[in-house]
Write a protein that binds this DNA or RNA. Structure first.
Lengths: 181, 181, 181, 181
DNA sequence: AATGAATGAGCGTTCATTCAT
DNA sequence: GATGAATGAACGCTCATTCAT
């Protein structure tokens, strides 16, 4: 019994299943067999057919997850203009994603951890937006003088260690103190 | 041609090779075959002979690496009494280990990441010492009021994101500012 | 050179080869390697592909063997109505299977012996049919009073010890004497 | 710490441990590793030292177990002169051994099953004594005319299928009926 | 009489991928 | 756009045995 759907729909089905498997079982255990089982597909051949190889699949998962997460971040920070509010909003929003989009967040981390060549690229991407805001805040005299790159990466690291929204608020307090100095 | 050495020497040879392979290739790629090749041993059977199973080997690697790292940390913090100096010393020493003991540090992270039951235990172990120092600093009025647990975990996360000793110094500045408030 | 056949045909080829290997070498020596060699397949991977695991393969072997054996038994006892004739037919047919279907009979025994959870189920299955016939014979007054369960199991044990059709006839004489009493 | 005992004592310790492991886990799972663990020995080397190879060890286990079992049988049948009483005594005593010497009985069966060359020898040995008694009973006119070899083997098979002393008594009734005819 | 250390061969299973329609 | 079938390589682990004191 052969079910035919569009290329795009099939790719989406597979990347979503892969995202959930990676989040649940970790990158290394996210084999074609497990993804196929989770998605209820007929055979691993369907993955090979729609993705060149496993790396190709992982890139698709990553791009989709980053897209979703970024969209939410943009929406929640839209219209926030004061620097301190932006910093708090950034941190709390990111931590909040753990609850609203756990699979995407975990999948991004797993993939970044397991594809070493990707980690710095992802880190730069993630840190870039924040670093620009911090630099602007320093120019406006709202933030003290500190190494913007170190601060941005440390904030990102801190967010990765968070596990609740209470923790996120404490984290925001902490880094506002460190930035305002 | 059969080469015989003592049990202890062989175990050490294997754990050291395993440490290096884990650091270089990651936990998941640290197979018996790779370890044996790296150590120049005759067969993977030698590992099975000296370690009950792979988990047993990994625990031996972990214990050895933590022992080495802890010894260095203790030596470098010995005699430091003021809280701020301790905090700087802790952060800079930990970051410094990345250069002096890269394999041990990376192996500890890899093992913690890949043995999920172990991660919280290791995290508590690592954060505990720091949290006690922070609490004491608050009692003495040197540090501001903040959530000690969040601060300790954030410092640990920040250290994990570091990649140079310059970075470590900036990190110390940052967290001293956040703690002294 | 890749040879492709249907799933069903391949499964049958593998179960038949497995049946023969088990009968010849015993359950424990029936490794994937031996089965593949016996069947002339390209690699053990073919077995893993068509059967979930070794237990799955063994169940397939068992079901096929029992099916074959049962079919023969049913055919040979069909239309036999008198109790004594049935008893003789049952014993001689079962012993006869040793010559006509030696691999199936031996494979069933090997699997039952080596999968302990299975032994009682198989024993009940085998003994059940016989026990019902014996009980009915007692009701009709053809058979003496004896413990039906013990008699049925003893007949089954006796059959398992048989090694020729002459032996089977003697066995039938013996148990008819014991039953008619 | 090297403990030295006599050759004979050590062999006995090992064969007894092996007997228990075989009885508990089956012949195939009775590896040197398991035997050594069960006996509390320092290494498998101790087995290799005292026994030429695994077959040698199994023969020692078998001889010891048969010796024990035979001794009991002889003691219990000593002085029994009437044929029917002997037959009942033989069957009930053998079944009784299952309770009094379960490890020896199970070990003998396991070894016989797994060393195919041995099975007929053991069967003859076991059946011989019984067959002579049955023949004598026929000469005396106590027993009917039947194939002594088949009867003896069937009795032995029936005993192997027994699992309680009640079952043993039923079995004795059954075979007395079949023999006296 | 005993030991410590080492070993090659084999096991079932999982992996992502490829062949052939 | 989708499938069924096949594959070689690698995995951790266990086996009885042998080397060397």
């Amino acid at each position: 019994m052969q079910v035919t759907v569009t290329e795009a729909a099939r790719r989406k089905q597979i990347t979503e299943a892969a995202t959930e498997v990676i989040a649940a079982d970790g990158y290394q255990r996210a084999s074609y067999a497990r993804i196929v089982e989770h998605a209820g597909l007929s055979s691993t051949r369907l993955i090979s057919y729609h993705f060149r190889d496993k790396n190709d699949l992982m890139m698709a998962v990553l791009i989709a997850a980053i897209g979703t997460v970024d969209e939410r971040m943009t929406a929640r920070l839209d219209g926030v203009t004061d620097r301190v509010g932006m910093l708090r909003g950034y941190i709390e929003s990111q931590v909040g994603l753990l609850r609203t989009h756990p699979a995407q967040v975990k999948a991004i981390r797993e993939i970044a951890q397991n594809l070493p060549d990707l980690a710095p690229v992802l880190a730069d991407f993630r840190v870039g937006r924040l670093a620009r805001q911090l630099t602007q805040g320093q120019r406006e005299g709202v933030f003290a003088e500190f190494d913007v790159r170190v601060m941005a990466r440390t904030i990102a690291s801190g967010i990765d260690g968070a596990d609740s929204e209470d923790y996120g608020r404490e984290l925001a307090d902490l880094f506002i103190r460190a930035c305002v100095g």
